[in-house]
Design a protein around this nucleic acid. Sequence first.
DNA 1: AAATTGTATCTTATAGAAAAAAGACAAGCT
DNA 2: AGCTTGTCTTTTTTCTATAAGATACAATTT
Lengths: 303, 303
Amino acid sequence: MKTDTVFKRAFNDALDLIAEWPVGETLPSENALATQLRVSRTTVRKVMAELSARSVIGGGGRQRIVSPAYTKTDRFPEVETVAMSDQVEKRFMEWMLRDNARPGTAINELELARRFGVATTSIREFLNRFQRFGLIERRPAGGWVLAGFTTGFALELFEIREMFELRSARDFVALPAHSLLWRKLEALREDHITLLREIDSRFHDFSDLDSRFHRLVNSASPNRFIDSFYDVITMIFHYHYQWNKHDERQRNEVAIREHLTFIDALISRDMEAVEAACWGHLASAKETLLRATSEQGMFAEAK
Amino acid sequence: MKTDTVFKRAFNDALDLIAEWPVGETLPSENALATQLRVSRTTVRKVMAELSARSVIGGGGRQRIVSPAYTKTDRFPEVETVAMSDQVEKRFMEWMLRDNARPGTAINELELARRFGVATTSIREFLNRFQRFGLIERRPAGGWVLAGFTTGFALELFEIREMFELRSARDFVALPAHSLLWRKLEALREDHITLLREIDSRFHDFSDLDSRFHRLVNSASPNRFIDSFYDVITMIFHYHYQWNKHDERQRNEVAIREHLTFIDALISRDMEAVEAACWGHLASAKETLLRATSEQGMFAEAK
DNA sequence: AAATTGTATCTTATAGAAAAAAGACAAGCT
DNA sequence: AGCTTGTCTTTTTTCTATAAGATACAATTT
């Protein structure tokens, strides 16, 4: 049976919406709400029904209003709003990075299913999708082995990343002056400066900025295989940022400055400066990731 | 319920084995057979039981012999020996390349399941695994769209391929003289010459040789992301060779000669010659693929 | 008439089950 | 003692079923 995480997330979002809606005003139409909450009308109606049942809203048909007797009602807990597939990914990464899982370990679908409390179907689906990230491998006999987040993995990742990033930077510099991307780069530059100013409180926001920057550079000459490779990087860095808290603020500040050097080099169209900035940034990103792989015990290479 | 394609293939293989076994001699042990037939003992026993039931073999326990009264028995048809997942892939490629399917088409799991006569689970599994090839894309809402085997796809594919191949060729040339790979290259060179001599009858065998050559070049400095990318190329060329019969013999002969030029350049360690040979070969491979994409109507770009 | 809601249908995500195949262990043979 | 076979257990593959959610169409309101 499908989980109702979509409904629960929409319900919570609807509560936020209602909190700012004048009591007595009729609510937007179902279609409008569907667009705002990014779900189908079917789900909107289910949310409205639940809100009615909890007397958060009153009136029926096209006269739905925020109930005058509106009292705070319980939101659904966050965990229940994230899709099963995302939860499986998260749990798997935890299992791989936190628990014992050494490279070479056989992956047992049934055991993972039991451990995560989901059906085997969900595990299979996850493994099939996750395969492309290169952290697991299919055995010819059937079944999977953990390739693991090893030093070798990080080195291979960065070898490709260097090729792609340099190629994209070159194409970016060759962009015509009137290209929209220059303006986007300009905007992103501002975002960097803003974040740098507020680094002490907002250093967590760097992860997202990082991904946006590199994807913008790549968008100069789109290539689906490069985009797809960036999904790997995004995933790795997502978990890396999430778990490696050591020196986080400091690391991010350095990276922002490197980005700015890179951006300025791009704007100057000086390809030599671009290459230098690109190498510099990648070298330090690589070093950070490699340090993480050896700092934590479970990252040791198995052979 | 799982299909018994493994059993059926093993059964057919066992028949081949028995055809060359002296009547009256006791057969190899179950373990030995399991290794030879590349299945588990469980399956070997099932095969033996079936062979017994059909009186192809006689005696029991460790005294199994080819029955003196052995008569030819029906093999299982080829189709029943290929795994469901492989069949789904084949049918999907047919649907995409032969039938109507235009890029941008929404992919309907249920419809495909009905069309292919399998459960939706099999379709889902296929789509999840197949995603990495870049021919389909997941929609945020859920569901899939066909990206399709378009000209754009081929161009993007070759952009990456050029980067990877050149990089690997460079690393290959830098290999120490005593490396095992030089000998493997030498052997592969011989295989090329042999095939060239028998090209008129064996031109179909080129597909496999092509894949072996390029994977050997890449093995000079292994990188899982490059290997994974080669899976895409192998898959594409597999279907391309299978369906584009036009000028096949001629095309393959040209490609073999290009490979030989490439190989000789590698052996000479002359990086300039290597680059030239590499570019030359890739340019012609690209042209072939691009011509295929425009020759056949369904490859037209949709926008 | 256009937008909105009500209703029915189709599609996807997930569970659960069962057969096939692999693997583990015990017993038997040489 | 080391293979070999018999038996039992575990794991993977594949099917069917069902609730959640999306989409299409009909009815209704303004």
